[in-house]
Design a protein around this nucleic acid. Structure first.
Length: 424
RNA sequence: GUGGGCGUGGCGAAGUGGUUAACGCACCGGAUUGUGGCUCCGGCACUCGUGGGUUCGAUCCCCAUCGCUCACCCCA
């Protein structure tokens, strides 16, 4: 039993798993850059008010899920629970609005939320995401959704569904809220305790409550989607038109609400049923008031974030694996004291030449060392014993064919390079 | 925060109220001298998560506690 264990909800990404992570991170980076997004890296912690204001101080994230602490200077800081607020802060603080707009940014990194862990949910988890700040053209909504769609497909995920909705702007949302509450007031007492609370805080959620979702009055309640102002309705129609133009399938889900206050108009989720109850593999939407709320100009924005762990779960569920680990071209085996110095020389020369090489430091017998060479998948085993030391040679053994030749030490690098074609 | 399942050697996994707790994998060593992947032989458990309790006696029974895991809520 290990005496020390990692904190709840965190994970060690071990070398075998890291191969998959590298694949996902590299693939995402290449894709984003081909769409002309540029990377931005922001701090992993921010002043707490960034999230309180940006994400919204009534949201679950802010009210019960943040890792917040007071630093030695007495400031309240918080480990970022999501990426957009920090990017927005950086956009404003560094006056990126003075540059070409829209700014197209992408990021990748750890996020933190104090939640009870379960499949696809962790306290430290990783997001990749993009933000387009400075345009509210519905073509940018469609582009962001298309990037997300392409990303998942590039990762080998094909079985997801795209759920789409518009949650309106502050104007139509306020208008809708009044009508919704009027509609629900008569049955208010009949709703579940969760929904009683949602009544004031977030009435939109009542519409897709699992318990009350079948209540006739709830079912007949006006949805935000059907209550959009002309401007928002037009925007939503245009987004759908552009998605159709790219033949991206989607399903309008009128009850879908996203959990962060900054969302306006377009909201979307990519859902993958193979990864457990937490089936949202990627989510995003438009946030037209956020930049201004954080002290910047009144610029609109849209973006998405996806969870790497959930993507990996989906890949695993579909049996997808990236390339296996690389094996050394040469594995140096020394037998006896006298051979050790020569083995160091040979290993150094190989690496100097850019050849992937490793050596056995076990001091075990030849048999065990050859076994080790086999285990790491070495192409060649280089044997150095008393005989080789005396003659200044190295026995070069092809592990696959078992052919073994004696090569002068000075010619070892050339011999290996020739056979592997990997000389640097 | 709430509920279900689980916690046996590095990993996977049996098991019983009572002398030495299966097995598989991995690992280490050996099967003629300096030669691998197969086979054979051998080796490898100071607390059966932790702390109490019941009992003549508990890894198996009870309580507590910690941890893991799945689900609710919500989200990526």
């Amino acid at each position: 039993m290990a005496e020390y264990a990692k904190p709840r909800g965190t994970a060690d990404i071990l070398p075998d798993d890291a191969l998959e992570w590298q694949f996902v991170e590299k693939t995402a980076q290449q894709l984003f850059e081909s769409y002309q997004y540029r990377e931005i890296r922001t701090p992993i912690f921010e002043h707490t008010e960034i999230f309180e204001r940006g994400v919204g101080d009534t949201t679950d994230i802010v009210t019960r899920e943040m890792y917040t602490f007071t630093d030695r200077g007495g400031r309240s800081v918080t480990l970022r629970p999501e990426g957009t607020a920090g990017v927005a802060r950086a956009f404003v603080e560094n006056r990126l609005y003075g540059g070409p707009l829209p700014a197209k940014l992408y990021y990748n990194g750890p996020m933190f939320r104090y939640e009870t862990p379960q499949a696809g949910r962790y306290r430290q988890f990783y997001h990749y995401g993009v933000e387009v700040i400075g345009t509210d053209d519905p073509r940018s909504d469609a582009e962001v959704i298309e990037v997300a769609d392409r990303l998942l497909r590039t990762m080998g995920i094909e079985s997801f569904g795209l759920e789409l909705n518009s949650v309106g702007c502050p104007v139509c949302r306020a208008d809708h809220k009044v009508r919704l509450l009027e509609h629900l007031e008569p049955v208010r007492q009949d709703l579940c305790t969760d929904c009683q609370e949602r009544f004031e805080k977030n009435p939109l959620r009542i519409l897709d409550c699992k318990k009350d979702g079948n209540n006739p009055t709830v079912l007949s309640a006006p949805t935000i989607t059907d209550s959009l102002c002309d401007s928002c309705a037009g925007h939503f129609a245009a987004v759908k038109m552009y998605l159709d133009a790219m033949a991206i399938p989607y399903q309008v889900v009128k009850t879908m609400v996203r959990g962060l206050d900054y969302y306006t108009q377009t909201a979307f989720e990519f859902v993958e049923s193979s990864i457990g109850a937490q089936s949202t593999i990627l989510g995003g939407g438009r946030y037209n008031g956020l930049i201004r709320m954080l002290g910047g100009p009144d610029l609109p924005g849209i973006g998405f974030a996806g969870g790497i762990e959930r993507l990996l779960l989906a890949r695993a569920a579909h049996g997808l694996k990236s390339a296996p680990q690389n094996h050394p071209d040469a594995y140096v085996i020394a037998l006896g004291e006298a051979a050790r110095e020569a083995s160091v020389r040979v290993l150094y020369a190989l690496r100097q030449a850019g050849i992937s090489a490793d050596a056995d430091y076990s001091g075990h017998g030849l048999k065990a060392q050859l076994k080790a060479a086999d285990r790491v998948g070495a192409t060649f085993a280089l044997l150095i014993g008393d005989d080789e030391v005396k003659s200044g040679t190295v026995a070069v053994r092809n592990m696959a064919t078992k052919e073994q030749t004696s090569v002068n030490e000075t010619a070892v690098v050339a011999t290996i390079a020739e056979h592997t074609g990997r000389q640097g």
